[in-house]
Design a protein around this nucleic acid. Structure first.
Lengths: 363, 363
DNA sequence: CTGAAAGCGCTAACAA
DNA sequence: TTGTTAGCGCTTTCAG
């Protein structure tokens, strides 16, 4: 491995000068500069990122906490985030927590602030305590997909108006003429998808369309989970003409369930999801869904993190932590970014209800 | 940030002793050990990974080169690889090359040997030259999914017998009674999927089943690519009763095409893929495919890389590179690992051909 | 069993 | 414009 020192010797200058040339830190003569550059390419020198980071007092990576990178939503986000990180000079470390807070904590303990300069958090089932601790240790944290712009958390975040997404999906179904609509929620009751459910429910209510509790199911956020929920739902309520799913994966599962029950989508049953993952475009029929600005969220999250890192670098090196009193005031709303709103992608899985469906109201 | 030094002062010992305690490097008294441990937890000390790596002359991460982490196959692999890497004390950096060799080279230049101790290469369209250069600079490289155990590359690799996978898929179709079988290859002619195609073709040939060139299509390795290829194939050759796809994504696309052409799968058309990605299980009908040992390959790849790193640490620190003369002899077969063979997953997308299909032989 | 000292490769004041 | 001098936080001989 060629070191800065060797380059310096080869060029007949000191390490400092080589460093200056490489970092374009001005103060260096044209002649020497050239000699240094020649030495660099002659020796095939490449800066040692770890050494540089240590000397600069920074870290060369960002950490991305996800429950499992194999969840079809994350790679799309991770791709965009990694791109953005690169452009701010960071590499991206993926941390699969497997939904286990202990694993998450272990990652944070090890790399936050030492190997990673900041932490991006996707739904990874982490304890907020651990995140706060991470922050206090000097490694900024950003929640990447906060679902409620109206209720900022006490951590910096990028918020997406998922309540609106739910409302848009519901309105779409309403506009099509549906009045008997089931719901599949891809989280626990009051869980991560609560805002989506609210948006859906409130929109129905505002339109005077009944939505009894019994026509909602809470399911695992997966194709399989959606499948099971949809089967149960459709068997219990055959009069439903549409299903709202709080995420695309369960929506896809619902379409499969419909097929297995002999229902054609969209003629017999409309299905709408939320997110617009790649698969939604590729399903048969193509899934109508409410697109969420994934890429924008990724870019905003990285950008926000970058700013926070910069601020931490300057300000809070030794002092200023206790001053903010648990940091809620400043750490809350002030560091929330809101993405552009979700938008309807009406595709082939939704259509007006069949006119010959029985009009009875059950439950 | 608490440093080792601060811990040492707090405990009334020197940094060296603290280090010894933390690394369990023996030589330390029970009393002092306890005092140190107390200081550590009192101050909330966490070792600085970057500093440690620099001092130890190692790097804390492994790099995973992929064309795009959003390709549905990669996350499954990455997940397993990251787990394995963790257990060898490494974090995983994902490098999305976007199929661009320049981007790949840039990553390698920057992190190989400085931030990353070794490199895992999935199909990322890298130049072998760049990989060899990386190796010579002291950062071991492992190709993660070499498709031809019979033709080892001159780089360490984990090989999966994809020729066998192709053969198994073909045999499955043959066993079902199909004789008019089309092929969709998810790469360029002679490209990455050539071995799969060979296995398929040779098996048909051995069974005396004709497979004219015109019933093969080369496509983009995606659902969409498979869709287009299948449409073209089925429109040109309506007598086909089965389609072999060299990968699951194109196979899924073929199923969609069949649906759009009014063909039922598997009654009118059987479809078989290769890999067994998660989606294959979730499609409707569930895709018959030949499962490839992804997880095992990931684990083997990381393990092989770990060994190579260890060896490089010991041996080749200052000398021994030129000796091997381009390193082909030792770098080839000697460092190839072969996974367990692919295995058929017969699901719902394959069945015997309809007996009433016209028996004409065209082309 | 513990301490002192040197150094990993690089950067960042400050001097010259 | 360039060189000198300290470190970044940790590990690791080698003495004591």
């Amino acid at each position: 491995m060629t070191t800065l020192n060797e380059v310096a010797q080869h060029a007949g200058v000191t390490p400092a000068t080589v460093s200056n040339v490489l970092r374009s830190r001005g103060r260096v003569g044209a002649a020497t500069r050239q000699r240094v550059l020649d030495a660099v390419s002659a020796l095939g020198y490449r800066p040692h990122l770890t050494a540089r980071a240590l000397a600069e007092g920074r870290a060369p990576t960002l950490a991305l906490m996800v429950s499992s990178i194999a969840n079809p939503f994350y790679p799309e986000f991770a791709l965009a985030a990694e791109r953005a990180a690169r452009s701010s000079g960071h590499f991206m470390i993926v941390c699969n927590t497997n939904e286990d807070p202990e694993v998450g904590r272990a990652y944070l303990e090890q790399i936050a602030g030492t190997l990673s300069e900041g932490v991006l958090v996707m739904n990874a089932n982490l304890h907020f305590d651990d995140l706060h601790k991470t922050e206090q240790r000097g490694a900024p944290v950003v929640l990447c997909m906060w679902e409620r712009p109206d209720q900022p958390p006490d951590l910096p975040c990028v918020a997406v108006d998922f309540r609106a997404a739910g409302a848009i999906a519901a309105q779409h179904l309403l506009d099509l003429g549906h009045t008997r609509i089931g719901a599949i929620i891809g989280s626990k009751r009051g869980g991560i998808h609560a805002a989506r459910q609210e948006g859906f429910r409130d929109t129905l209510r505002a339109a005077g369309v009944p939505h009894p509790q019994s026509t909602a199911r809470f399911a695992h956020d997966s194709i399989r989970g959606g499948y099971q929920a949809a089967r149960s739902l459709l068997e219990a309520h055959p009069q439903l003409t549409a299903i709202f799913a709080s995420n695309d994966l369960p929506a896809l599962g619902a379409m499969h369930a419909a097929a297995d029950l002999g229902l054609r989508v969209p003629q017999d049953l409309s299905v709408v999801g939320i997110t617009d993952i790649e698969l939604a475009r590729e399903s048969r029929p193509a899934l109508s869904t409410v697109a969420v600005p994934t890429r924008q969220a990724a870019e905003m999250a990285v950008d926000l993190l970058r700013q926070l890192i910069e601020r931490a670098q300057r300000g809070g090196n030794k002092a200023g932590f206790e001053a903010a009193g648990k940091g809620a005031a400043d750490g809350g709303t002030a560091t929330m970014r809101v993405t552009s709103p979700p938008v309807l992608m009406a595709r082939a899985s939704t259509a007006p209800p069949r006119s010959d469906m029985p009009a009875e109201t059950s439950d």
